[in-house]
């Protein structure tokens, strides 16, 4: 423009600058948005291969009760024994893969599908289950419980 040639019409030039500016900004947004969302850690804090942090606190589970939690795509069961100890097992019944539950009046784990019984060490004690429940390792701190697969 300073070399003496005819400058383009100002309105056209204005539009062009607007178009370039806006689309560059749009592109930045279109790339920046996914990237920033990508970097935000997802709710499930880790891939559930071997460890899961439970979504409830230790005080929410009184003695002689249990809670079912999600361990990968399968359920786990966290039991607080009448003595106050926390134990975790796979909640998948070893017979036909139903989800087991804790029976407070029996004081042990029970599968409703075929009346299978497991004691508080996960051993199959009655009914059709052929094997004990897989036991997990429980780590308890003041405000969280972490369950992991045994070594």
């Amino acid at each position: 423009m300073n070399d003496g040639t005819k400058p383009p019409e100002p309105s056209r030039r204005k539009f062009l600058n607007w178009l370039l500016g806006t689309s560059v900004g749009g592109l930045m947004l279109a790339m920046g948005f996914p990237v920033s969302r990508y970097l935000i850690p997802p709710e499930a804090a880790e891939s559930a291969t071997a460890t899961v942090r439970l979504p409830f606190k230790p005080e929410e589970i009184p003695p002689n009760t249990a809670k079912i939690f999600k361990f990968g795509n399968r359920p786990g069961i966290l039991v607080r024994t009448p003595a106050g100890e926390l134990r975790a097992f796979s909640a998948t019944c070893t017979h036909l893969a139903c989800t087991v539950q804790y029976r407070e009046e029996l004081g042990h784990i029970w599968c409703a599908c075929h009346n299978g019984h497991f004691d508080l060490t996960g051993q199959n004690i009655a009914g059709p289950p052929p094997r004990p429940l897989e036991a997990f390792v429980v780590n308890e701190t003041a405000d969280q419980i972490v369950v992991s697969k045994g070594a």
Partner: peptide, 21 residues
């Protein structure tokens, strides 16, 4: 957005080169 940017760039190049400098 990308197409708009491409159009903008094409116009810019034209302006530059047909503008003569």
């Amino acid at each position: 957005i990308i197409v708009a940017l491409i159009v903008g760039l094409v116009m810019k190049i034209r302006e530059m080169e047909h503008g003569g400098g």
